[in-house]
């Protein structure tokens, strides 16, 4: 066994890799032949095995076998999951390739998509192979000049919508909305320097110092907010425990679990 899994080199290595792929393909062919009635139990069993690993790793006292092999398990999981990258690329290529082929409205945007994809990917690979080439500054331009700016600007758009939403939706309709609005205002003012300067005329050591905005907002965060968040966290904790168990034991229902196989 030890000799079998020992590192191989040269032609022998490639033969072993080819052999592994052939065996793997054979196993997949075998899976394709699985009768329909056995498919769901097989998936449930594999899901159970996956969950069992971490359950045992937790339940068995520290320094157990499962903890020791964790680095290998994680490595394998990362590598296998990285193969999913091509699913996203395949879908995007399909959508944009179709748009160009059929000359759909805005097809030139799809051309821009392909150009951007190949430009940054090739610049990245070339800069790794030849760091002194023009690919290095080109990669910088594409990353910092375009990608970074586009992503951060797109995210910052939400600021405009939150202003619009606060202005239009925060109305004094009932006592609860008033309470929420006042709390939000105190937090917004108390956390920023100009806001806390508004009540800085109240002496810091006086009896009324608790009315200073920074102290009031901090009190809200530390006591009422903390208690509310903890109550919500307990709900989330129990809910995720139940959900975890349902997934582990394949008891969960929904499109993924109920679909005909």
């Amino acid at each position: 066994m030890h000799t079998l899994f020992a590192p191989k080199h040269g032609v022998e290595l490639w033969l072993y890799i080819a052999g592994s792929l052939v065996i793997g393909a054979g196993l997949l062919l075998l899976l394709c032949q699985t009768p329909q009635r056995l498919r769901k139990p097989v998936i449930a069993f594999v899901t159970f095995l996956g969950g069992l690993y971490f359950t045992l790793e937790f339940l068995i006292p520290h320094d157990n076998y499962f903890t020791h092999v964790m680095p290998e398990v994680v490595n394998a999981e990362i590598v296998v999951s990285c193969f999913t990258l091509f699913i996203g690329i395949y879908n995007l290529f399909g959508v944009h390739g179709r748009a160009i082929r059929r000359k759909q409205p805005g097809w030139y945007n799809s051309v821009a998509f392909f150009a951007a994809f190949f430009l940054i990917a090739s610049a990245g690979f070339i800069k790794d192979m030849r760091p002194d080439s023009a690919a290095t500054p080109l990669f910088e331009i594409l990353f910092n000049g375009f990608m970074n700016s586009l992503q951060s600007t797109t995210f910052s758009l939400i600021a405009f919508y939150i202003v619009s939403a606060a202005y239009r939706a925060f109305r004094i309709r009932n006592s609860e909305s008033v309470l929420m609005m006042i709390t939000a205002m105190i937090i917004m003012l108390g956390l920023v320097p100009l806001g806390s300067a508004l009540t800085s005329f109240i002496p810091a050591n006086s009896f009324f110092s608790f009315l200073r905005l920074e102290k009031l907002s901090y009190f809200i965060l530390l006591l009422p907010n903390m208690a509310v968040q903890r109550a919500i966290a307990f709900g989330v904790g129990v809910g995720s425990m139940a959900m975890g168990l349902r997934i582990w034991l394949s008891l969960e229902r929904g499109s993924f679990f109920d679909e005909e196989l």
């Binding site: 990258l85 995007l92 821009a112 998509f113 994809f117 990917a121």
Partner: peptide, 13 residues
């Protein structure tokens, strides 16, 4: 679309 292409290409690389 440029952003989409760059983000996908960068992820791939």
């Amino acid at each position: 679309h440029v952003f989409l292409g760059l983000a996908t290409g960068y992820s791939f690389y």
